[in-house]
Amino acid sequence: MKPLLSIQDYKAHFYTRRGIVKAVNGITYDVHPGQTLAIVGESGSGKSVSQLSYLGLLPTPPLKIMGGQVLFDGNDLLQMSEDQLRKIRGDKISMIFQEPMTSLNPYLKIGSQMIEPLVIHRKKTKKEAWKLATQALERVGLSRADQAMESYPHEFSGGMRQRVMIAMALTTDPKLLIADEPTTALDVTVQAQILELLKSIQQENKMAMILITHDLGVVAGSADEVVVMYAGRVFETGSVDDIFYRSQHPYTRALLRSTPRLDKLEKELPVIQGNPPDLISVSEGCPFYERCSYQKEICKREFPRESSLGAKHKWFCHVEKIS
């Protein structure tokens, strides 16, 4: 299957007064149509920046794209002009964010915001767009969609607002949906509803989804493939089963073990010592080196080369075998 999005050795750094922050430091992976790829990592691992930056959604400077390719449908997004990018954003590639209240305009009716992508990208008249947007709201399970179109964002609960965001992102039938922590601000019972909704819409549309999250439970329930990020690097990629049952990277394993689980009665959680590194002072070596229980001399100096098993499962570690 040809990938819809192919990211190759992509680098994006921030030039700040304190120094260069290597937020995305050479990442490579593919996203396939109809599949959900989850990007997991802790805060500061670069999971959001790795997506927002190539879409031109971050200010440059301080951001500077340092190299690599981001091929969408075969075209390199990094070579496109702002005009060309704008035509893709919100049309073929849509996004939803963590906090729906900050991504909706509080002064505008839901309807006026909903029709924007249709009027801009699809050249619909306002009337046609209004009708399509109302249908989109119905599709995400909002009762009385007519009334919702005439309401303002503050009249909705968090879960409802996120439904509106999803409906808005889907009005143009995007090929790729990037969901950045879409359920992190929501309660678990609402989270379950939203994840279910995203799954059913995806199956209907054969749309690809990139799900950015720090919640390994959400990954297990929603992803087909997983990318584990740490300090701007990809540490491991593979199918969801590769990552959860056959993980080869010490960080992935440690992360899984240190997460409390509802189906277990743990006596004591194994912990990862120390804190995530400061991205200004990351060395050329493996950024996990200091916290890793398998650390070797070479880890300090050199970032490991790719190891792989089968077509999909890849990881980056100097250690031959971990227990």
Binding site: V188, Q191, A192, E196, G217, A220, G221, D241, R261, D263
Partner: peptide
């Protein structure tokens, strides 16, 4: 509430039945 909490285990997640809570 318990049924809605995601568990970091893909096989378990595929088999789980959630008790849906309607409304807000």
């Amino acid at each position: 509430l318990i049924s809605a909490v995601p568990i970091p285990d893909p096989k378990l997640e595929r088999e789980r039945k959630r008790i849906p809570l309607t409304g807000e």
